[in-house]
Amino acid sequence: MIPRNARFWTGAAAVIVLAVIVSLSRANEYFFFAGFVVLQSVVLATAWNILGGYAGYVNFGTAAFFGIGAYMAVVVINATGAPLAVQILAGAAVSGLLGLGTGLLTMRLRGIFFSIATVAIIFIAETLITNWRYVGGATGIQLLRPPLMEPFGSYTRMLFVVMAVLAVIAVSIARYIETSWIGRGLQAIRDTEEAAECSGVPTLKLKLFACTVSGALMGAAGAPLPMYLSFLEPASSFSLNYSVAALAGAIIGGTSHWLGPVIGAILLASVQQIVTVTIPGEINVLVVGVLLVVFVVAAPDGVLGLLRKLRGKLRRPRAPAESPS
């Protein structure tokens, strides 16, 4: 167990160090614009997977938690002008509370009914923000970026590193949940909720916990958005695209392991970024849909499932003595 843990933490540290080094290099500014979006989708897919993958509660409300996180950052900027770290914490806290509230209201719903209820949250949140003048209302709000922080050469470069740190935090939390009794309990809920209850799994507490953590991470992912765009308006902040991308990233990568959403989100967001700059129009949204359909039909266990199958095939010829039973 110890070597595997050490390997994970070394990898996590390496990712952050790499992000810092790249951000200090002379790489093209566009790389950081795109990289920020890719890392943001890693956080979203990982957060989605905690509830949707481990516990099997398919959440379409990612956009709501993400958007609320972004707008909480605006509130913090308007009210106090506090730095980015505070904005992120505020976004995570409020979205976490929203997750807890959603869990309390929807915990009796299962399957498709839960999913429908989560879609409703997006519209509620968007309507509230649209009618709230303090954060710009329907017209949106223009924001001034604070002065540059040493040693970063541009604000986008700094945000890129911040998002890399958030991604590492999100993945570490997901991995901790997955390998602990919490993850085991969520897995039981996903498989047969009634049997989980009989075994003494605190199903309600675990579901609420998953809702809260998942929501908080989505909120944290949204908080840097206002500074990234220097402008925020409700329609695009609460776009259903965020919900679909988070879910698609996790499903394409594979939901059973923390690595799945990471692979899926990087793959999906990178392809989308490439398509965005090479083909005009909204083709990049189509890419998500097509990839999702292809994976759901052809590889329901995602990239990880494909890799596992491949490894099994490679191994089989070496062990022909194994009985067919």
Binding site: Q187, A188, D191, T192, E194, A195, A196, C198
Partner: peptide, 11 residues
């Protein structure tokens, strides 16, 4: 022990 052998079939 619930009725109908309620297991976790995918585990």
């Amino acid at each position: 022990v619930p009725e109908g052998r309620r297991l976790f079939p995918k585990l």
